[in-house]
Simulated assay, not measured.
Amino acid sequence: MLKYRTLDTPTGPLTVIVSSFGAVRAAGFTTDVADLMSLVHPSLRAPAEPADDVGPVAAHVRSYFDGDRSAIDAVTVEQHIGGEFIKHAWQVMREIKPGSPVTYSEFARMAGRPAAVRGAASACARNPVALFTPCHRVLRLDGTLGGYRWGLPVKEWLLAYEDPDQADPAAMRAAAGVMR
């Protein structure tokens, strides 16, 4: 049995679907659980029920938005889809540090396949656990945002928030209209 919870964040609702072991199988800036479930590999799908307790995930998300930009690194994820390259690319993506975005080309090199720029872009597009596997930290070659399943304003906000020169997380939340 899976459980899910929608958390309020400065960028809007973040819904997480977690396994009975507390691993995130899907996450996105939406309240549409069915849409999120469609991102989960069929072998990992199960009925999902709303829950107040999704293990330590909610606390890590709160810590992240309260200023500990590495708090989400401790969250366990379960991702499975297709080929080995995408699985490996998702692991590598989790190593991209907050405030240090990379281009698709750099990401492909980090994943060990410099010519696989399209494969790197595909790994971002097919990522079922937004925020925790930070596809928002991958940019076009010219440094522009590119696409983001949850909307470019969300990606832009996350990148600005993770910028090491951004000194005040409370100001970022207030600017987004979220007070804690």
Rank of each mutant, 00 (worst) to 15 (best):
M1I: 10
M1D: 13
K3A: 03
Y4G: 02
L7N: 00
D8Y: 09
D8L: 07
T9R: 01
T9V: 15
T9I: 15
G12T: 04
I17V: 14
S20P: 09
S20E: 15
R25S: 02
A26W: 11
F29A: 14
D32C: 09
A34V: 15
D35M: 14
S38L: 12
L39I: 00
L39A: 05
L39R: 13
H41V: 01
H41E: 07
S43W: 14
L44N: 05
R45S: 03
A46Q: 14
A46W: 12
A46G: 15
A48D: 05
A51E: 08
A51V: 03
D52I: 01
D53C: 02
V54K: 08
P56C: 13
P56H: 06
A58V: 07
Y64H: 03
Y64Q: 04
Y64R: 04
F65K: 14
D66K: 12
R69W: 01
R69Y: 06
S70A: 14
A71T: 06
D73F: 12
V75Y: 03
V75T: 02
E78K: 09
E78F: 13
Q79V: 12
G82A: 07
G83C: 13
E84I: 06
E84T: 10
E84W: 05
I86K: 10
I86F: 10
I86L: 15
I86D: 05
K87D: 04
K87C: 02
A89C: 08
V92W: 14
V92S: 09
M93H: 09
M93F: 04
R94W: 08
I96G: 06
I96L: 07
P98N: 10
S100P: 06
S100W: 03
S100C: 06
P101S: 09
T103K: 01
S105T: 11
E106G: 07
E106S: 12
A108K: 11
R109L: 11
R109S: 06
M110G: 13
M110D: 05
M110S: 11
R113F: 12
P114R: 09
A120V: 00
A121H: 15
A121T: 15
A121D: 02
C124Q: 13
C124F: 06
R126T: 13
P128V: 00
V129G: 02
V129S: 00
A130R: 12
L131W: 09
L131I: 08
L131A: 00
F132P: 00
P134F: 03
P134G: 12
P134V: 01
P134E: 03
R137I: 01
R137H: 01
V138L: 10
L139F: 10
L139I: 02
R140E: 03
L141E: 12
G143K: 12
R149D: 02
W150T: 11
W150P: 11
G151Y: 04
L152T: 07
P153H: 05
V154W: 00
V154E: 00
V154R: 05
E156Q: 15
W157H: 06
W157N: 10
W157K: 07
A160F: 08
Y161F: 08
Y161W: 08
E162Q: 04
E162A: 08
E162Y: 00
D163L: 00
P164V: 03
D165F: 00
A167M: 09
A167E: 14
P169V: 03
A170M: 06
M172P: 03
M172Q: 12
R173L: 10
A175D: 10
A176D: 05
A176T: 10
V178M: 15
M179H: 11
